[in-house]
Write a protein that binds this DNA or RNA. Structure first.
Lengths: 221, 221
DNA sequence: ATGCAAATTATTGTATACATTAGCCATACA
DNA sequence: TGTATGGCTAATGTATACAATAATTTGCAT
C-alpha cells in the first residue's frame, strides 16, 4: 500500500482500536484529512479498506461510521473462530516442524515466567496477551494455509474492536495458560483431534470470559 | 457503493469471471478507464475492493493483476469451504424453518425435472448449476449467521474465478443431485451431524471433480 | 407554535492535474 | 560483448477542483 494511504489506514485503525473513534462515530473525510495529514484520496482508500475488513460501515453519500458489534455478532464471531482455529490446530498437529514446535514451547515457557514474576496484574495480563497472540499466530502459520491465517487474523482483530481493553482476571489467565500447555502436548504428540478439541475449548472459554463486558454493550446502529 | 464505482466494479469483475481478463493479466488504470467509461478514481476504488475480495493482486507502484490460483490454493479453498459449508449445514439442520425447508425441497424437485427433460447437456448443466447455487445459498441463510454467509459467498466466487467454465459430466451432476437429496433428508430430520457429513462429502467430491481442470493450470505469479 | 417547503450549507462522489516512482532503452565504458 | 549508468517514458500515487447529493436551517403559511 502506498505511503499516504498506509498512513491514513494505520492512523484511523489505531484510533478505532484505542477507542478514540468509538463505535457508531461518524468519520467525516475532511476531519480525517486533518487528523491524518494526507489528502482526501488516500483517506477514502483507507476507509474503503477498513470497510472491507469490517472496521467501519460505509453508506452511499452518507460516509463512514465505526462499526458497532452486537452480542449476537460476537457470538457468531467466536463460533467461527472456534471452528477455524480448531481446524488450524488440527492441521498444525499433522504438519508442524521441530523449530515451530520449539517456538511454541518457548512462548509457553515465557508465559510461565511472566505469571511467576512479581508485577502488577495489569502488566502481567498485558505481557501475557502479547505472548498469547504470538502463540496463536505460530499455530496458524504451522497450519500451512495462508488463507486460513488471513481469515483468523481478521476475526481476531474484529473481536478486539468490540471490547477495547477487556480486563482479564488472574484465574482466567491461569485457565488460558493451562490450555496452552495442553495444546503444546497435543501438538507434540502430533494428535490432530486432540489439538482441535483443546483449541475449540480454549476459544469457547475465552468467549464466555468476555460475556460480562459484552452484556454492557447493547446493539446499536 | 456509488454509481461510477459500482459500474467499474461490476464491469471488471465480470470480465475476470468471464475470462476476458485472464489470470496474471495486468490491469492498467487508464485502460480500465476506457473500458468502464468512468474516471480513474472509481476505477481505483473498484480495484481496491477487488483486491480485498482476492480477485486481483495489487503491488505498490506496480498496479493490479488478475489473481491466479495454484492447485494448492484451490485445495485450501475447498478444504475451508468443506469446513464452513459443513458448519452451515449443521446449524441449518438445527434451526431451519418450514418455509425454508420447503424452498430447498422445491429446488431439489426442480433439479429432478431438469435432469429428466430432453435438452442439450450444456443447457442441462447450466440450469442445474443455477439451481445448485440457489440451494446452497438457501442453506447458508438458514444457518442464521450473516458472517458465515459472506465468507462462503466469497470462497465460492473465488472458486469460480479459478476455472471459468468448468465442464461437468452427467455422472458428476447425478452424483451431486444425489447429495442434495440426502441433504434434504438430513435437514428434514433436523440432524446436524448428518447434514454436516453430507455437505462435507458433497464439497470434497466437487473438488475432485475439478481436479483435471486444475492440473492444466500450473501456478504462476 | 407548528408543519411544510425552499434555499442554503455541508459532505460525499467524480474528474483531472500534478508528483513520484518504476521500468526500459540507449549509450558509454570495461 | 557484456554490464552499468543515466535519462526518458509510462504508469501509479496524491492533491484538489468541480458535481451531485443529503442534511440543515430558515421563512412562510396555517
Amino acid at each position: 500500500m502506498s505511503n499516504a494511504t498506509e498512513r491514513a489506514y494505520e492512523t484511523i485503525r489505531n484510533a478505532i482500536l484505542e477507542g478514540t473513534f468509538p463505535p457508531t462515530a461518524r468519520l467525516k473525510e475532511t476531519e480525517l484529512v486533518a487528523y491524518c495529514r494526507v489528502s482526501r484520496t488516500p483517506v477514502r482508500e483507507a476507509l474503503r479498506r477498513l470497510a472491507a475488513e469490517d472496521f467501519v460501515v460505509i453508506q452511499r453519500n452518507q460516509g463512514a461510521r465505526v462499526k458497532s458489534w452486537s452480542a449476537e455478532d460476537l457470538d457468531e464471531l467466536f463460533s467461527l473462530r472456534a471452528l477455524l482455529e480448531g481446524h488450524a490446530a488440527a492441521r498444525a498437529a499433522s504438519r508442524i516442524s521441530q523449530p515451530e514446535l520449539a517456538g511454541i514451547a518457548g512462548s509457553v515457557q515465557e508465559m510461565s515466567k511472566v505469571l511467576g514474576r512479581s508485577m502488577s496484574q495489569k502488566n502481567k495480563t498485558t505481557e501475557f496477551l502479547r505472548l498469547n497472540s504470538k502463540l496463536h499466530e505460530a499455530i496458524w502459520l504451522a497450519s500451512g494455509s495462508e488463507r486460513l491465517v488471513s481469515m483468523l487474523r481478521q476475526l481476531v482483530e474484529q473481536a478486539l474492536t468490540a471490547h477495547t481493553a477487556a480486563q482479564f482476571s488472574l484465574e482466567r489467565v491461569a485457565q488460558s495458560h493451562h490450555h496452552h500447555e495442553e495444546l503444546l502436548q497435543a501438538l507434540s504428540a502430533g494428535d490432530p483431534a486432540w489439538a482441535e478439541a483443546v483449541m475449540r475449548n480454549h476459544i469457547h472459554a475465552a468467549r464466555h470470559a468476555l460475556a460480562p463486558t459484552i452484556a454492557a454493550t447493547p446493539d446499536q446502529q
